[in-house]
Design a protein around this nucleic acid. Structure first.
Length: 435
RNA sequence: GCGGGUGUCAUAUAAUGGUUAUUAUCCCAGUUUUCCAAACUGGUGACGUGGGUUCGAUUCCCUCCACCCGCACCA
């Protein structure tokens, strides 16, 4: 398995094969935004579906929601994002390096006036004068309603978790759930990253797959371990990602998010090194407590059995779709030597492969083309798979194309044997398969 | 955002201040073929954007945009 692929190579491969295109490419693109092509969207859908099945369908106490992207701005005040996503920064006026103003001042405050006073006359770590502190807001802003005014400001959600917490009571009530139970969501989120980087690794518009699991405070440790385990086995067993490309990383106190008491990330061996893929965080009661304070609605839980009222704690399992898709692509990437040529094959696990079956004709008869449409429809309906059906003449070329995207099963149809829309299929040896 | 690098068909590339911008793969058409990344013939397709210098710019200069590498940032 060749792992020496660079992001640059993968970017052009992804484009050539129709996985990922630059957003608004004909206008020169826009940094941090990417579009999925025909194969990319199938791959993404497979990943989402596998995750959803594993987490929602296979756990009877976990339910799905699909929240709005724009929520009441107070939600982001309560979640800490208005404060936490708004960083005061200063620049070294000589070399342009940028620093967090509060870090340089050595205080835990984002008050611009306070910071300005403290930093007066201070030099940068390189000994140069500093600029005035300025605010960088990571949340994307918009206006609700036709008038742009301060009253109508809203934000595109910087994470999907918000609407899970605000719907905690709604879901508990309608599903008649008892603690522990979970709420899962797949959806888009937006962040004004200062510098989007590394293909689709760090982007400004992204899709999160995450689940918040509401538990009794005493169960933090066991549930934390449970969801760490879930993430790892999902990657290895269901997506077929090689274990040697995965690594655990525990967040130190200084790198944890504002809400987390403990955090373990699974890192994947991306070309730029081991980087974050899937986070399991202990959010404690931070979110429900904050939303209870801001909304003045009671979000505590009463356990009928133990006659105990408590604030549920939360274990979060969160993974970015584009990152998991990138990891899947990288893990499938294989170079093979054929003669003195090197060819690229994407060896996907059958479950994630964008095209499950490639149907290739044994011979071409123009009068059979209507029949082949019928056969195609039949096959797709009966299998539920995305099938590539090919009745063009360039048979040899098509084989190459099918194989390049790692279609797990290839089927050849003998058109001569077609009779009343029935088809005799002769199975070819499947592609190299993982798992 | 800073520093460095790179932008030529879909992809990988060659060359050039001046006639029709090279090659391979892909794609399209035809011929052939009971195939397992076949062959032959023909064809479509490119100088990132805007400006400047110049008789003439894909080439030289500048702006912007995008991507890659390093730094910083990453609730």
């Amino acid at each position: 398995m060749s792992k020496e692929v660079t992001l640059e190579t993968l970017t052009s491969l992804a484009k050539r094969r129709g996985f990922v295109f630059q957003a608004s490419e004909i206008y020169g693109g826009l940094a941090g935004f990417w579009d999925y092509g025909p194969y990319g969207v199938e791959l993404a859908n497979n990943l989402k579906q596998l995750w959803w099945r594993a987490i929602v369908f296979e756990n009877r106490e976990i339910f799905g929601v699909d929240g709005a992207i724009i929520q009441n701005p107070r939600l982001w005040k309560a979640s800490g994002h208005v404060a936490g996503f708004t960083d005061p920064m200063v620049e070294d006026t000589k070399n342009g390096k940028r620093y967090r103003a509060d870090h340089l001042a050595g205080i835990d405050s984002t008050d611009l006036e306070v910071l300005r006073e403290l930093l007066k006359g201070k030099k940068s770590p390189d000994g140069n004068p500093l600029s005035e502190p300025r605010v960088f807001n990571m949340m994307m802003k918009t206006w609700v309603g036709p008038i742009e005014s301060d009253d109508s400001v809203a934000y595109l959600r910087p994470e999907t978790a918000g609407s899970i917490f605000t719907n905690f009571e709604n879901v508990r009530e309608t599903t008649r759930s008892k603690i522990p139970f979970g709420i899962a969501q797949i959806g888009k989120a937006f962040r004004n990253e200062i510098s989007p980087r590394d293909f689709i690794f760090r982007v400004r518009e992204f899709e999160q797959m995450e689940m918040q699991y509401f538990i009794h405070p005493d169960d933090q440790k066991t549930q934390y371990e449970r969801w760490r385990e879930f993430a790892y086995t999902f990657l290895t067993d269901r997506l077929g990602i090689a274990a040697e490309n995965l690594q655990w990383h525990e967040h130190g106190a200084d790198e944890r998010a504002h809400y987390a008491a403990a955090a373990h990330d699974i890192y994947y061996k991306f070309p730029q090194g081991f980087k974050e893929l899937w986070g399991t965080h202990n959010r404690t009661d931070f979110d429900l407590k904050s939303h209870m304070a801001e909304s003045k609605k009671d979000l505590t839980y009463f356990d009928e059995a133990t006659r105990e009222r408590f604030m549920p704690n939360v274990i979060e399992s969160s993974v970015g779709l584009s990152r998991i898709l990138l990891a899947t692509l990288l893990d499938a990437y294989t170079e093979e030597k054929v003669g003195d040529e090197t060819r690229v094959v994407l060896k996907f696990a059958p479950a994630v492969a964008p095209v499950k079956v490639a149907v290739l004709p044994l011979s071409k008869k123009p009068e059979l083309s209507v029949l082949s449409d019928k056969v195609y429809t039949q096959l797709v309906r009966s299998t539920g798979y995305n099938i590539e059906f090919d009745d063009t003449q360039s048979i040899g070329k098509r084989y190459r194309r099918q194989d390049e995207i790692g279609t797990p099963y290839c089927v050849t149809i003998d058109f001569e044997s077609l009779n009343d829309g029935c088809v005799t299929v002769r199975e070819r040896d499947s592609m190299d398969q993982k798992r």
